[in-house]
Computed example of a mutant assay.
Amino acid sequence: MNHDTAPAYGLWSLVIINSAVFIIFAFSFTKPRSARDWRSFGAFSGFILALFTEMYGFPLTIYLLSGWLQTRYPSVDLMSHDAGHLWNTIFGLSGDPHFGVLHLLSTLLLIAGFGLLSWAWPHLHAAQRRDKLAVTGPYARIRHPQYVGFILIMAGFLLQWPTLLTLLMFPVLVFMYVRLAASEEATMRREFGADYDRYTAATPRWFPHLSGPDHLEGQA
């Protein structure tokens, strides 16, 4: 059984630093204003805190599953950092998990999620300043790019470092974002009326158009 020379857990400074970096980065591209915005951002922040607490602080999932894991994978040092990449252990993937297929896919999802947040914010901000409907940039292809961005980021982290708490939180948060999206659409429909109806008829809610946004050029 291999043991890390440095402790893999109890690194609370890393919990704080990593959580702060991701939460502040997300905040910089969402700028919550309404109660709806704060609920969305707060739920995402809770997910991030739960994730990094188990990644560097206290490995609750490892402790709860330690009996089953030690019986099934007796050669695995459960207190090593690599063991926290549970998908690799469960699926019997060899090699450094940081360079495995799941970690690379996780990185792509994280880049896509944060990229979508950063792309969406200036278009939403510009529309809000003009009291207009946001129909440019990612909003020309999908109605809720910020919610989709949050979901991609959470899915990416689940591929990289699954925990019981975040696995339970993920479907709950997705359901919450679906409800928030419906509430947001009701508000937009009251504010913009027929313009919003035309927008929703031409623009998917969750899965984006890959073609150009020609159908919305007149509303920009």
Rank of each mutant, 00 (worst) to 15 (best):
A155L: 11
I16H: 01
Q70K: 13
Y73H: 12
P213F: 04
L116S: 09
L110N: 01
L152C: 10
T200Y: 08
I48P: 02
R33E: 14
V178R: 13
T163D: 13
L168V: 13
S13I: 14
L49K: 02
L116T: 10
H215M: 09
L64T: 11
R36H: 09
I17D: 08
L86G: 07
R198P: 10
D96E: 05
Y9S: 12
T136P: 00
Q219M: 13
R141K: 15
M1F: 10
Y199S: 09
Q160L: 15
E217Q: 09
L216C: 06
G84A: 14
H103V: 08
E54R: 01
T53M: 15
A201S: 14
F175A: 15
F207V: 15
A201D: 05
P171K: 08
P7I: 11
G137F: 00
T5I: 13
A186R: 08
T61Q: 04
Q128M: 04
L158V: 02
F192M: 13
T5Q: 12
A120H: 01
F29L: 02
R179T: 13
W87I: 09
R179P: 09
L49S: 06
G67Q: 01
Y177P: 05
D197G: 12
A182I: 13
V76P: 04
F150L: 02
R205C: 08
T163V: 14
Q128G: 02
P122T: 01
Y199K: 04
W121Q: 03
F192T: 09
G212I: 08
S183H: 15
G193Y: 04
T203N: 09
L210M: 11
G95E: 00
Y73K: 07
W68A: 12
A20I: 06
L110M: 04
M176T: 11
A83M: 05
R179E: 14
R190T: 15
S19M: 03
P213K: 02
G57S: 12
N88R: 01
L159V: 09
R205F: 11
P208G: 00
V172C: 10
G218F: 11
Y139R: 02
I23M: 07
I17Y: 05
L173V: 13
R72S: 15
M154L: 06
A194I: 13
F52G: 11
M176A: 14
L11D: 10
Y73Q: 04
Y147A: 04
I48S: 07
A155S: 07
L109G: 00
A120I: 03
F22A: 01
I62R: 06
Y63N: 11
S118C: 03
